[in-house]
Amino acid sequence: MDELIDILDSEGKPTGKTAMKSEAHRKGWFHPTVHIWLYTANGRLLLQQRARTKDIHPLLWDVSVAGHIGAGEAIEISAIREIQEEIGLTVPPEALEKIGVFKSMQKPSDELMDYEFHHTFLCELKEPLHHLKKQESEVEDLKLISLIQFSQETWGLANLGKYVPHSIEYYKTVIKEIKKRL
């Protein structure tokens, strides 16, 4: 789905310009996104398998919930909206814990430059997996995986081709922040 988004400079600062997401991806313009990692009290992480119809990294496993921040939309409102849309879960704003903003530059093809600043949150998942309702156009599958297994599979990027290729630093930060909360 194409949507109007804010354009950022290479340092993540607003430029005052907006564009359609498709144009930003075609021209390699930086823009803001939200990433929400959901974890359980017993050390499991909710992963989302990206839909097979996605332009970027179809069928790879990724962050629990992610999405673009609409033009002029508050970051936390975007995070709450994306959680509701992608997995059918209503989360209050106070359940979100921001752990940082991460610059990401991926170029899956000559026509597609995905340059983003991920506003990244953690949120404890208190609902069982079978209560979640995946958005078919975005999400192929959902699963819970132990934090230990996820750590082993992402820190050394041992499973290239299974996970979206975020930086090792990004994955390490997410894992360390979740461990602090267990």
Rank of each mutant, 00 (worst) to 15 (best):
D2E: 11
Y171I: 00
D9T: 08
L157Y: 06
V139Y: 05
E86C: 10
L122W: 08
S22T: 15
K54F: 08
T18P: 02
P58V: 00
G72I: 08
K143D: 05
S146I: 06
E177F: 02
S10E: 15
F102P: 07
V174Y: 01
D55G: 10
T90Q: 13
R44L: 05
A66L: 13
Y39E: 09
D55C: 06
R50D: 06
I36Y: 04
A41P: 04
E73S: 01
I7L: 15
H166Q: 11
A79K: 07
E136K: 12
E138I: 10
A41V: 09
P32G: 12
L46H: 14
S64V: 11
L112K: 09
L96F: 10
G100L: 01
S78N: 10
L60Q: 12
V34M: 11
L147Y: 10
I7D: 06
I83W: 02
A51P: 06
E111K: 03
K107I: 07
L96A: 06
H31N: 14
M20G: 14
W155F: 13
A51Q: 09
A51Y: 07
A41R: 15
T90P: 03
G72R: 10
E73K: 03
Q149A: 04
Q48D: 06
H130K: 05
E86L: 13
L144N: 05
D141Q: 12
H130I: 00
T90W: 06
L89G: 12
F102C: 05
E82H: 12
L132K: 08
L132C: 05
I175R: 00
V63K: 08
L132N: 04
V65R: 12
L112C: 10
P32V: 13
P128A: 02
